[in-house]
Write a protein that binds this DNA or RNA. Sequence first.
RNA 1: GCGCCCGUAGCUCAAUUGGAUAGAGCAUCUGCCUUCGGAGCAGAGGGUUGCAGGUUCAAGUCCUGCCGGGCGCACCA
Length: 554
Amino acid sequence: MENQIRKIIADAVGDLQKDWQKPVTDLVYDVQVSRDPSRGDFAVNAAFKIARQIGKPPKAVADELLAWIETRRKKIKEAAFITRVEIAGAGFLNFYVKQTAMTDILTEVLRQDERYGLSDFGKGRKTVVEFVSANPTGPLTIAHGRQAAVGDCLVRILRHTGHDVTAEYYLNDAGRQMNLLGESVYVRYLGNFEMEAVFPEDGYHGTYIHDIAKALVAARKDELLTLDKAEAIAEARQFAAKMMMGTIEHDLEAIGVRFDSYFSESTLYTKNAVEEALEVLKERGHLFEQDGALWFRSTAFGDDKDRVVKKTTGDYTYLAPDIAYHRSKFERGFNQIVNLWGPDHHSYITRLKAACRALGYEQETIDVLIVQLTTLYRNGTPVRMSTRAGEFVTLEELRNEVGPDATRFFFIMRRVETPLDFDLDLAKKKSDENPVYYLQYAYARIASLIRFSGRQVPDKANLELLEAPEELNLIKVISEFPKALVSASQMLEPYRLADYLRELAAAFHKFYAHHRVVSDNEELTKARLILAEAARMTLRNGLRLLGISQPETM
RNA sequence: GCGCCCGUAGCUCAAUUGGAUAGAGCAUCUGCCUUCGGAGCAGAGGGUUGCAGGUUCAAGUCCUGCCGGGCGCACCA
């Protein structure tokens, strides 16, 4: 429908252009589904955009377009479904279309079923979404949880809109933090044999360290006591990392988050990738030595200051392996890089993008989403968190308390760049106040309705019977699903899907409250069952993309 | 000090990237269950979109300045 309207406008412009002073090029305008019936079914703002280009008042352009359409409305086939076009406001063209033109979408939804919403919008995009990427030095926190929920949801949406997506977890397993973990566990391990040792400064204090140590004792008995300290710590580190990763993967799995790839930082060193990446930068003339250190001239790419990649000590900074890591993304053929980072990495974005361009990757898109922090609220007051003392609310604890569905939904219902207030009491409430239940209730209600009807949803019916405002509105909302997905996909904003689904659920509830579906009127019953079924499928497809269950009963 | 982000209803947030009368949820108040699930629906109140200019057919959105808040400015990771 939208395409046909665009075709008409394009033809009109092509025709009228002759009489205009300036040419119209690259015309971009909106064809918007109107939710207000007094504004027609579709609102088009093309006249404004044309007016700007040719230097005429929008109203005048709209008049010309309207006249053009009116004189040909009976002749051109694209216009067959149009019943009326009118000018509104300062130059909007409002299109009124035939009922069947709107209801056709319902049979289409039923036909496409699980495929409704799929698009090839992202065709040609080979996308890597990197998120969570927490060091396996402790359990995942709620900060990771938000990243996990948003990232996973984004992956699903990108996939659904035709991107070739890889969900990747970058494992910082080469650094000092991992050694600290090993040392912390080792000291606790010794403690199990009544042996004293100095606990490392900045070591990890959480009770989970004791758990790991106990597991280590169970697995290796007193074997580590015979090794020298460095060796024993290395063993402890390896054991702890493996065990922590197991826990992390389990916690992610529990809220439906899966990764296609775990990329280990340490492999960058074993494969000499860090040296190679720096070599490339050097060849391209972006490195220099100063004060005994090796620098990347990032200021050439808009950074505030140049950055050290290799310290005077000979060690790499954090940036060096990260450059190598991102180079590997390009080398693996990805042309769309999406990273989800915490707010503490904000200033790092410029640096990374500078490095990517310095490596010679100009065409590829790099998007870094800063996922802001979450504050949990209980009884209206913030829950205190402190990683330092090893006391923090873990993702696992949160999930156990509010359940996986609410966990995911609350994490994604806001734009990622806004800090999130997570109301625990609200998330647990099984009532109308809880937005998760609003969506799931709509789904369960439709499922129940179809069960009640005691029959199969028919393939076809006289859909022209659907003419009440609530019915037409629901149809319009259903028809906007693919567009909502593309929008969420393009802008990398999963919350848009959550927002859309709330609107869809509201449209259904409203329809349901005003009209009886199963009645004596056989034809109308059929038509309304089709409408309900299309709503159910759309809701289901959307909830799946959010990773939220679709209960048949509640 | 420099850079980035934010300021919208009592609260939490939207607003189709510049579109028409700024919308939802929560909270408050008022209605609706003898028929498909009331975890729902209908309605009311609540706004100078921080302030002042500017750009244009059109500004919550873009530009400038101010006010208020947050974050970042490492040879840490």
